[in-house]
């Protein structure tokens, strides 16, 4: 979302942008001029690691989109599929067995965030 807001800022200042992303809903809700969407787990929006051919094809599509889009909110989806679909379910999965674990993780994270805030906001 920080990327989408920055793309909007660049566009508003006359710099055409293209966003290459896998979190389609977040980018489209923020609203960008051009989005190249690849339906992969988050982490490799430019292609499968070490698959140079795919990375080249996806980058080429981003350049094509940059050049060819005529209207804002133009989304193009690349044709590539992740080898499996389990990640769709497993990412940020909440199960009854994990509820207590997640609650504790949240407490730890809040303590860390508070400590960080106390440490760096004094400076």
């Amino acid at each position: 979302m920080s990327v989408s807001l920055t793309a909007r800022h660049l566009e508003a200042n006359g710099i055409p942008t293209v966003v290459m992303a896998s979190a389609r809903d977040i980018v489209e809700q923020a609203g960008v001029a051009r989005l190249l969407f690849t339906d992969f787990p988050l982490g490799n929006p430019c292609g499968v690691p070490y698959d140079v051919e795919m990375q080249r094809a996806i980058t080429r599509m981003a350049l094509d989109l940059l050049e060819n889009a005529r209207f804002p909110r133009t989304t193009v989806q690349t044709p590539f599929q992740w080898p499996t679909d389990e990640w769709r379910r497993n990412f940020m999965l909440i199960t009854p067995e994990k509820i207590e674990e997640l609650r504790v993780a949240g407490e730890v994270r809040r303590r860390e965030q508070a400590a960080r805030k106390a440490k760096f906001e004094k400076i």
Binding site: G43, P45, C46, G47, P49, Y50, Q55, N90
Partner: peptide, 15 residues
């Protein structure tokens, strides 16, 4: 998604 993939190849996210 640290379970499904990795970021060891910079080309997969910085082209």
């Amino acid at each position: 998604d640290k379970e499904a993939t990795h970021t060891n190849d910079v080309g997969s996210f910085l082209p």
